[in-house]
Design a protein around this nucleic acid. Structure first.
Lengths: 228, 228
DNA sequence: CCTACTTATTGTCAGATTGACATTAAGTAA
DNA sequence: TTACTTAATGTCAATCTGACAATAAGTAGG
């Protein structure tokens, strides 16, 4: 009577929503079998042969969106006995990950009848307890943006401070003072100026930065060393 | 070829170490079968019939120490394929919890040939990847003590500020200024004076406080509502 | 070339927070 | 009444924060 083990992933990207405004979005897949047939759900699947949990989550992400994550972290494991209730199937324990995908890459993501991107703060009713899971992932993302550098996961190699600030503004849903933002991010030492600038716009050309690659995006303590 | 699912728990308590000094300690159980026979390991076991993950961790804790936790939180899930290597047994995925036990109760804890308490910062070589797991739990505890009120999990209903500060000092392993500690903990609104004092000592009697029960010990966002 | 306009970047300043440390308060023991 | 111990409160400079002002460096259009 072992419960079934599944890996699911909440995938975040910044991309244009239906109004064309850049928003925090995530891809969902349509259930093609009972229970919850027809509802939208997090991409997921079983843990396979010899892969680690992290690898399973990454595979999962590739299969759904044909993208690779710029940041990937385990979120939580869900195993309440009622969560797959309604079905007469056996019990499922889900180990859930969350991932960030670069804005540019996310435009290449596949979309189809059964894969669709939704605005994170405006989801339909999802299968199982997936609404709660997304809510928690969102909470974690917003918390982590404030004390780590996960925001870089949305950006390319090089970026301007305005782009970085835009990420913060969209994720946190509020305006941030330009000057203060620059000050805090500069004193944190999280970013390194590349010396290059973006020319062409009809204003002062912004400097390009990159993040310090000698440090990982988020301090996960002892887990930084090991893979799972 | 489903992997086996197990629940383990890192249980922390403040209790006297072998030198009689109050220290951060945790109970371990001796492996009585292969693999890793004879080594010390985290208490754990399978997920049973109809219990939630949280319940399994709590049961686990009761079985090992006959105590109930004052704080219990999921830590992480470990599933690297090599982690149970060395054995020809099947693959094990562990969902690990961490718990805090009150100092007074922890003195009632059972200890036996196969259950022993160790100082958290001075462990022997443990079975599987359990050293890494304890290290991570410790890291999380120390981080969380700074931005939540989990420290109360070590104390009884009522406590003095000196007792609360002692918890911080032991967990963080450093001295904390009395005055500043009082100021920060008072302005945070985490504690409520009961009006009572501790009489009897040959000095000014300290006031007793209790924590604000309308708030949970740690803000876990959307997870505060649901049980797992 | 000069002016208007836009965004980047730097600067200012008052208020809040923090850490180190000093002082006063309230009890017991002798 | 004095000595001693820990509790509780107070002080102050340094740092950090948030709101906002001023300057810099481009382009576009005349």
């Amino acid at each position: 009577m072992q419960p079934t083990l599944a890996i699911s992933t909440v995938i975040f990207a910044l991309r244009p929503d239906e109004n064309g405004r850049k928003a925090l979005m995530l891809p969902l897949v349509r259930r093609i079998r009972e229970p919850h047939l027809g509802k939208w759900a997090l991409p997921g699947g079983p843990l396979e042969g010899n892969e680690s949990l992290d690898e399973a989550a990454a595979r999962n992400l590739r299969n759904t969106t044909s993208l690779s994550p710029r940041y990937l972290e385990q979120l939580y494991s869900f195993g309440a006995p009622e969560r797959s209730a309604g079905a007469s199937t056996e019990r499922v324990v889900s180990i859930v990950y969350w991932a960030l995908v670069g804005t540019d890459e996310s435009n290449l993501a596949v979309e189809s009848e059964n894969v669709h991107w939704f605005a994170a703060d405006c989801l339909p009713e999802l299968a199982f307890d997936h609404n709660l899971i997304v809510e928690y992932a969102l909470w974690r993302l917003r918390a982590k943006v404030n004390y780590s550098r996960v925001a870089h996961g949305f950006l390319g190699e090089e970026f301007t401070l305005a782009q970085l600030r835009e990420v913060y503004e969209i994720v946190l849903g509020k305006a941030i003072d330009k000057g203060n933002f620059r000050r805090s991010v500069e004193t944190s030492g999280a970013i390194v100026p590349t010396g290059r600038v973006v020319a062409g716009a009809s204003n002062r050309p912004p400097a390009l930065y990159t993040y310090d690659k000698t440090r990982s995006l988020a301090d996960r303590g002892p887990l930084n060393k090991s893979s799972n």
